[in-house]
Design a protein around this nucleic acid. Structure first.
Length: 566
DNA sequence: GCCGTTTTCGGCCCGACTGTTTTCAGTCG
């Protein structure tokens, strides 16, 4: 996916240069395109190969041609031209808080500043304060922010941010009449930059005091009556905003985003002779809606849109004619379709895992220990599978709770599984995944997975792209062909709910559903606590617009086994 | 440069904050 970021960076760079040159509207167009490319869930090369670049919202004939040019030649002629006119490292300079394209332009014209190094030098020598539009204070903050930029942290995994935000919400809850997380965390993006919390309270001073003095706060970044920001020990930043009750709904809508979703909504409001902001939906000076999100959407003639869908990918059009899908919810889930026990590489016993499933309100457990030739995972052979079957029967009796015996096998380079037929027949559910040879070329990898999902040997392809967020790139594969083969063979694709995986991701969930493929959600739990990750899997499925019917975990035990042909 | 039940031309989101300005531009989210 590296090319996506490179393409996005170039487009952003073009936007910045146009903005410096005070060209109108082009900056917005390029910036929007860059943002879209950045948030794609698949390699931009794949989309180019399908000839579908033009047609992505925000990407028209010209930008599509520039992307193709970059993928073919590694450069964009127009970009080089613009760069020659303004040989400035805009990306680096605008990453400094408080510096945008206009100021960067001024600095270049007046002082010839091209890089962060130039900037630092000029600021230290006190040459910046003298420029028109700049002053002592600007110079000082530039110096401070150069230091800060060096320490800037990356984004955080959704699973981790949820853990933190849950703690904050329960700490503040008693003093607030309304309290919720907004931002990308509410939309359940796979990573989040920071945590945004909105609150309504009778005693705002007390809530702010409580917020900045919580034990996990490492540093108070800003403190005010309506908004405060802190950094937690974990490095994640949290903003708390106190909102008036009458505009809580519109504020929640506004701060939840996404930006593109909001821009689209405001365009609709405008066309209806209204105005939408964080303070409400207005007709002239009159507040039409604001207290609740539902009213705000309704005021524009739209159904309320689940946060996970708010990416301006067609959800607004569906909401306008009552066609939003009824997304799967945590309450629809009757089981977890991947977990491990001490029989292979899990940390908790089969008994503990199963009883935790029962505590969670599941109707049955599905245990999927490793089998086959994976040595490190203490994989089971046929003999141990038979022994495990006996233990399962014993625990079922003891807990009065059904346990389905599944297995997780390894997909060899040729697409076959590394276990004998006899073992696969013992198991009630066969998951299989790529656990080795991640770096095959695209053609071979595609063949490998097409063979695997077509073989009839496996029911579920687990963590299909093998990626680990911020650690390991997805395998290089033609996912459309794999989905087509899976659809033909009735093979299920997993939405792996482990925080580092979320694989398939929301974008690919939607592609899978469009291809007619059914999905399963599995936490890949290796201890009882991991079973709670199911909510991440459900959120990811929701980001891909999945309904309960699309997800196998919503089936009863009998329905599931029948669907698998058992 | 993109886009379309106000469309193939003429539009293009909103408000707060900051520092610098004496009425506002630039930046940010």
């Amino acid at each position: 996916m590296a090319e996506n970021l490179n393409v996005a960076r170039l487009l952003d760079d073009i936007a910045d240069i146009y903005e410096m040159k005070e060209v109108r509207f082009k900056p917005r167009a390029y910036r929007r395109a860059a943002q879209t490319i950045r948030s794609l869930g698949e390699p931009v090369e794949d989309i180019r190969d399908r000839g579908e670049l033009e047609g992505i919202p925000g990407i028209g004939r010209n930008i599509a041609a520039k992307i193709v040019e970059y993928l073919d030649t590694g450069r964009i002629e127009k970009h080089e031209e613009l760069k020659k006119e303004l040989p400035v490292d805009i990306d680096e300079l605008t990453s400094i808080e408080g510096l945008g394209p206009k100021k960067v332009m001024k600095l270049y014209q007046e002082l010839g500043i091209r890089s962060l190094e130039d900037l630092k030098e000029a600021a230290e020598e006190g040459r910046i304060a003298g420029i028109e539009g700049f002053g002592e204070k600007t110079e000082k903050t530039i110096l401070e922010n150069i230091e800060f930029a060096k320490n800037a942290r990356d984004r955080f995994l959704l699973g981790y941010a949820i853990f933190e935000s849950d703690r904050l919400i329960s700490a503040l809850g008693d003093h607030c009449s309304r309290l919720e997380v907004a931002g990308s965390l509410r939309r359940k993006r796979e990573t989040v930059g920071d945590i945004d919390i909105l609150a309504v309270s009778e005693d705002p001073g007390k809530v702010m005091e409580l917020f900045v003095s919580m034990e996990q706060v490492q540093k108070v970044i800003a403190r005010g009556k309506k908004k405060s920001s802190v950094r937690l020990d974990s490095g994640i930043n949290v903003d708390l905003r106190l909102i008036e009750d009458e505009s809580y709904g519109s504020a929640l809508q506004y701060f939840t985003g996404s930006k593109q979703h909001n821009v689209h909504l405001r365009t609709i409001a405008r066309k209806g002779g209204m105005k939408l902001s964080e303070y409400g939906l207005f007709k002239g000076d009159k507040l039409v809606a604001g207290r609740n999100e539902e009213e705000v959407y309704r005021g524009m003639g739209l159904d309320w849109i689940p946060p996970e869908m708010r990416e301006d990918n067609g959800e607004i059009e569906l909401a306008a004619d009552g066609g939003l899908p009824d997304l799967v919810g945590i309450e629809d889930i009757r089981c977890d379709l991947q977990m491990h026990s001490t029989w292979s590489d899990g940390k908790d016993t089969l008994h503990d895992m199963a009883s935790r499933c029962r505590e969670l309100g599941y109707e049955y457990a599905v245990i999927t220990d490793h089998v086959g030739e994976i040595r490190v995972a203490n994989a089971l052979d046929l003999n141990r599978i038979r022994k495990q079957k006996k233990e399962i029967a014993r625990i079922e009796d003891e807990l009065d709770f059904r346990i389905i015996q599944g297995v997780e096998a390894n997909i060899r380079k040729d697409g076959s599984l590394d276990v004998e037929k006899e073992l696969m027949e013992e198991a009630e559910i066969v998951l299989a995944a790529v656990h080795s040879a991640f770096r095959m070329d695209r053609k071979e990898m595609t063949e490998r997975l097409v063979n695997a999902v077509s073989s009839g040997d496996l029911h579920i392809l687990a963590h299909p792209l093998g990626r680990k967020i911020q650690e390991r790139k997805p395998i290089d594969v033609d996912l459309d062909r794999v989905l087509e083969a899976a659809s033909d063979a009735g093979t299920i694709m997993e939405v792996n709910a482990f925080p580092e995986r979320l694989d398939l991701n929301g974008y690919n969930v939607k592609r899978a559903l469009d291809a007619g493929v059914r999905l399963s959600i599995g936490t890949d739990a290796h201890m009882r606590e991991h079973l709670g990750y199911i909510q991440l899997g459900v959120s990811t499925a929701r980001r891909g617009w999945a309904t309960a019917d699309d997800i196998m975990n919503t089936r009863s035990e009998k329905e599931l086994l029948r669907a698998l042909g058992k």
